[in-house]
């Protein structure tokens, strides 16, 4: 399964970014192959529609699950249409590594 985790930087010790559309980086984790990949989020600084565009990207990457701090209604609706599971983690001060450990 392909899992996306919002991240503030391009390595696993980076802080887990609780924003979805405005996250600087997206960590793509494959829980079967244990492969970790980081992707720069091109939509961070859009004036409008950052969430929608990031969701569009996630759908096109055929991600199965997204882990972030929260999802706006427009992004959530779009992800729902493609039955992508969204996971909300509300805790502060987590690293991307912490999240990966939990889902391993």
């Amino acid at each position: 399964m392909k899992i996306a985790i919002t991240s503030s930087n391009n390595n696993v010790s980076a802080r887990f970014d609780k924003r979805f559309g405005r996250a600087e980086w997206i960590c793509l984790y494959n829980d079967e192959t244990r492969q970790i990949e980081f992707m720069k989020n091109r939509h961070t600084n859009l004036n409008n529609g950052a969430g929608t565009k990031t969701a569009e990207k996630m759908i096109s990457l055929q991600v199965d699950r997204i882990i972030s701090g929260d999802f706006g209604p427009k992004a959530k609706n779009l992800l729902d249409k493609f039955e992508i599971q969204v996971v909300v983690v509300r805790e502060n001060n987590l690293t991307v590594e912490d999240i990966i450990q939990r889902i391993k």
């Binding site: 859009l46 409008n48 427009k74 779009l78 493609f82």
Partner: peptide, 20 residues
């Protein structure tokens, strides 16, 4: 300019977000 349009070619999906 407002990123209101989502196009996903493999899914045959094209939609305008009214709110944007």
């Amino acid at each position: 300019e407002f990123n209101a349009i989502v196009i996903l070619p493999p899914a045959g999906f094209a939609e305008v977000n009214k709110r944007l």
